[in-house]
């Protein structure tokens, strides 16, 4: 079952096509990384999923409902955190927790207390006195203690240092291991995302370039390096080539249907691609052609 299902989803701002016909599925229990350059439509996509924007055309459903007309009980199953969120500066963390709890029937107060302690925060602190990293940790504690089934994190680690980011990711992993949880996380910090997600969706210019299990992408996408004069043509014949470049006496093919059997007998060496390299390859493609 898919928690999110988007079909041909689009949103224009004036003449700017922020999201331009996006198809996206988020299977239940998966952690999906929504990855793209700045301005590729990640935040707009998330806001459409959260029902904070009306689509220009196309459709999206979350837990089978239209996010624009979502039942409060369904909305309560979603935990959402974005960059611009916050509380009034004079509000104490304890009051913020009580406020948040009043909206979410599944609120786990004991868990919230443990999270605050873990993040070195106290209920008596005022929101305005917190550092950026503390604010982010507090907001994360709030939405996590809400015990959501679906977590939507828009650039959750933006502007945070390595230690805080690691705490954040560790908490995500722990949560996913404790109970069934679906996560959508947008980020440009690819090594972070690579640690936690099991699926990725690459977006470019408001459209999906490719989506799938990260482990499958890593198995299937490889770089084959031929020396000039080697049997490059046989490589091109056997594989689906995403990208080809040459330089320093070598010809490099990035292919997306690699297997050891198919590579047998080819005069080339093989390189693996990590998430960052995969991203660069797919980001260089025209959306819809992968």
């Amino acid at each position: 079952m898919n928690v999110v299902e988007a079909k041909n989803l689009a949103r224009n701002f004036g003449t700017t096509r922020a999201v331009a016909g996006l198809d996206l599925q988020i299977p239940e229990g998966s952690m999906v990384g929504l990855l793209g350059e700045n301005g590729s439509g990640k935040t707009t996509t998330i806001r459409l999923i959260m029902g904070m924007l009306v689509p220009s055309y196309g459709e999206v459903s979350v837990f089978g409902e239209d996010p624009l007309y979502m039942q409060p009980a369904t909305r309560a199953r979603i935990g959402y955190i974005a960059d611009e969120m916050g509380l009034p500066d004079t509000m104490t963390l304890g009051d913020g927790m009580r406020l948040h709890a009043s909206y979410f029937p599944t609120w786990d107060n004991a868990f919230a207390g443990r999270l605050l302690k873990r993040f070195d925060l106290y209920t008596g602190m005022h929101f305005g006195t917190l550092s950026k990293g503390q604010k982010r940790r507090y907001l994360l504690a709030l939405i996590v203690a809400q015990r959501p089934e679906f977590l939507v994190l828009d650039e959750p680690a933006g502007g945070l240092d390595t230690v805080v980011r690691r705490q954040f990711l560790d908490l995500l992993i722990e949560l996913a291991n404790e109970r069934a949880l679906t996560v959508l996380i947008s980020s440009h910090l690819l090594p972070d995302v690579e640690r936690v997600v099991d699926r990725v969706a690459f977006v470019k210019a408001g459209r999906l370039v490719t989506q799938g299990a990260l482990e499958d992408l890593k198995s299937n996408v490889k770089r084959l390096i031929f020396q000039s004069g080697d049997d490059v043509w046989r490589g091109r014949e056997r594989f689906h080539v995403l990208k080809e470049d040459r330089g320093q006496g070598a010809i490099r093919l990035v292919v997306d249907n690699y297997s050891e059997e198919k590579a047998a007998g080819l005069f080339c060496t093989t390189e693996h691609l990590n998430l960052e390299e995969l991203f660069l390859v797919y980001n260089g493609l025209q959306p819809g052609k992968a």
Partner: peptide, 10 residues
């Protein structure tokens, strides 16, 4: 190594 190109499961 989660940041390697070899799938973690592999």
């Amino acid at each position: 190594d989660p940041n390697s190109g070899v799938p973690v499961s592999a």
